[in-house]
Every structure is written in structure tokens, then in C-alpha cells.
């Protein structure tokens, strides 16, 4: 009996130790990256100027990733972030230049991103088209519009808007978006339903979850966060061009993976991962620039890192299934 009891205790300890490590991996990754780049880059990473630049980039990536978590947690996907944010910034600037008040600009920006996500939601949820195809098409449609409109002329924000590009605006917006998303995802039925669908949609449905409505709502939440991020991006960049938002989808997906969010969804998705991962991906890119790595090479490295991480989490899952 005593031996058996000991075995049980040992088991429990072993399990929770592994679990704790698993939970800590995203944090450890971030800390190790900061230390590495700080030392290898002769202290250039954590200078006032560079921290500003890191936070500037992280804010809008993090806001989008917070919303993206809803979609990915139920097993959905979206790769239209970059295109849609470009479209949203374009519309916002056009409306702002017509003399609309700032609050109207904000709502237009959010609405113009939301429209695309509602389209993606309707097509993939209710018409059963793969969300990959839908969002790929949407990305191209947005890019097409952006390329057409911005080809001849560059559009800039009205001068008064420069005064809104402040720390308070950015950090408060991020904080509010994160807290709202955190509460919705971790503390209400919406997030729980999403995770349940990601785990097993039939079982979720038989437990009373409205699967389609939940999936649709996720796309709506994600669309709103993309719109909000669009406003932040517009204030910082001050203008829109054909390259606005390019490659953003890759940063969002890498952020989730670096934050420990399984891309297949399910119960292991955590909102905190979105925040940590967003910092990680920006610091990874920023650190490589400090080390003098060419921007184009960085893209290659990011692709490799993403593949490696997905591969590592994949083998872990397989192990779980074998047990």
C-alpha cells in the first residue's frame, strides 16, 4: 500500500512538473531571446529608442493576435490580416481626408475591417468553404484594391492626427483590448465554447454549444480587433501605401506559435500566449536586425522558426495520442 501511495505521489509530481515547464516555455523563450540579443547585440536591444520601436510594432500585432486566438482556438484559420488592415487604413485615411471627425474615422476603420471578416465568417461557417481559401481570396481582393488605389498617389492622414500617436493611446488601447479579450476568452462561455469546438465539434454541439454562431462570433471579434489595430497602425505610419500590412499574417501566426498557442485549437489555447508571443516575434525580428541580418534573410529565418516550432508541437501531440 505504502509503495503504491508513493508511486501515485511521484506520478502527480512528475506530471505537474512537465506541465509547469510546458506553461513556462513561452516566457522562457522570450527571456532567453531578450538576453541573447541584448548580449550579442552589445546592449543595443534595450536602449530607449529601440524599446520604443519594439513596442510600437508589438502593439498592433498583439491586438490582432488577441482576436485571432478566437478563430484559431475553434480550429478555424485566417490569413487575411495584412490585406484587410491595409484596406482598413486606406478607407480610414480617405474618410479622414474628407473632414470626418476622429470618432467617425475610428468607426469607419473598424467597420471596413469587420466587413471582410463577416464575409469570411459567412462563407466559411455557413457555406462550408475552407477558411484558408476564403481568407486567401480576401487577402488578394484587399491587396488588389490597395494596389489599384495607391499605385498613383500616396494618401496621408490629416496633420491633426499626429497628436494621437502617443504612448497613452497605444498602451491603453492594447490593455483594453487584451483585458476584454482575456475575459471573453477565459472567463465566459464564448471562449469555452470555442475551445470545446476546437477539441471536438460534435461533442460540443451535443453539450449545447451553438457551433455555427460561436464560430461566426469569433470572426466578428477578430474583425473588430483588426480594425482597432488598423487605427493604431494608421496613426503611427501616417500614410498608406501598397505595402501597408504586408507580411502581417505571418507575424500573427508566428506570434501564436511562439506564445504556445496550438494552431489546431482546443483546450490548450491561452489568451496570455497571444500577448507573450507578439512580443517574442517582434523581438526576434528586431534582434536579428540589430545583429545586422538582412531584412529578406529575416523572413527566411522566421519561416524556419515557425516550421520548427510547429514541428516540435506536432510530435508532442502525436506522443499524447499514443498514450
Amino acid at each position: 500500500m505504502e509503495a503504491e501511495a508513493k508511486l501515485k505521489v511521484g506520478k502527480a509530481d512528475g506530471k505537474s512538473f512537465v506541465e509547469i515547464i510546458n506553461k513556462l516555455v513561452p516566457f522562457l523563450g522570450l527571456i532567453i531571446m531578450i538576453l541573447f540579443f541584448q548580449i550579442a547585440g552589445d546592449g543595443k536591444l534595450l536602449t530607449r529608442g529601440n524599446i520604443t520601436s519594439i513596442i510600437n510594432q508589438t502593439v498592433y500585432v498583439a491586438i490582432i493576435t488577441c482576436g485571432a486566438v478566437f478563430v484559431y482556438s475553434h480550429g478555424g484559420m485566417d490569413i487575411s490580416y495584412g490585406g484587410v488592415i491595409g484596406f482598413s487604413v486606406l478607407i480610414s485615411i480617405l474618410v479622414a481626408n474628407m473632414g470626418a471627425p476622429f470618432i467617425v474615422v475610428i468607426f469607419t476603420g473598424i467597420a471596413s475591417a469587420l466587413v471582410w471578416f463577416i464575409l469570411n465568417g459567412v462563407v466559411s461557417v455557413y457555406l462550408n468553404v475552407s477558411p484558408f481559401i476564403t481568407s486567401l481570396s480576401i487577402m488578394y481582393m484587399c491587396r488588389g484594391i490597395l494596389n489599384t488605389v495607391c499605385a498613383a498617389k500616396k494618401y496621408s492622414v490629416p496633420v491633426y492626427m499626429y497628436s494621437y500617436d502617443t504612448w497613452t493611446v497605444k498602451l491603453v488601447t492594447l490593455a483594453v483590448v487584451y483585458i476584454v479579450c482575456y475575459l471573453l476568452f477565459e472567463k465566459t462561455g464564448i471562449g469555452k465554447a470555442n475551445k470545446a469546438i476546437g477539441g471536438n465539434d460534435v461533442a460540443a454541439q451535443l453539450a449545447g454549444v451553438n457551433v455555427k454562431a460561436t464560430r461566426m462570433l469569433s470572426y466578428i471579434i477578430s474583425g473588430i480587433t483588426v480594425g482597432i489595430a488598423g487605427i493604431i497602425l494608421m496613426l503611427r505610419a501616417g500614410s498608406v501605401s501598397t505595402s501597408t500590412g504586408q507580411g502581417l499574417e505571418m507575424n500573427v501566426i508566428t506570434a501564436m506559435v511562439l506564445g504556445g498557442v496550438p494552431l489546431s485549437g482546443g483546450s490548450r489555447v491561452k489568451m496570455l500566449g497571444a500577448l507573450i508571443g507578439s512580443f517574442s516575434v517582434i523581438i526576434l525580428r528586431n534582434g536579428l536586425i540589430i545583429l545586422g541580418v538582412n531584412e529578406r534573410v529575416i523572413e527566411g529565418i522566421q519561416g524556419l522558426v515557425l516550421l520548427l516550432l510547429v514541428f516540435l508541437t506536432y510530435t508532442k501531440n502525436k506522443d499524447g495520442i499514443l498514450n
Partner: peptide, 10 residues
């Protein structure tokens, strides 16, 4: 296992 439970959840 297919319809009543989410196996990968707690």
C-alpha cells in the same frame, strides 16, 4: 469518444 467527450480537454 467521438460524440460525448472532448478527449484532449480536461
Amino acid at each position: 469518444d467521438q460524440e460525448s467527450l472532448i478527449l484532449n480537454a480536461s
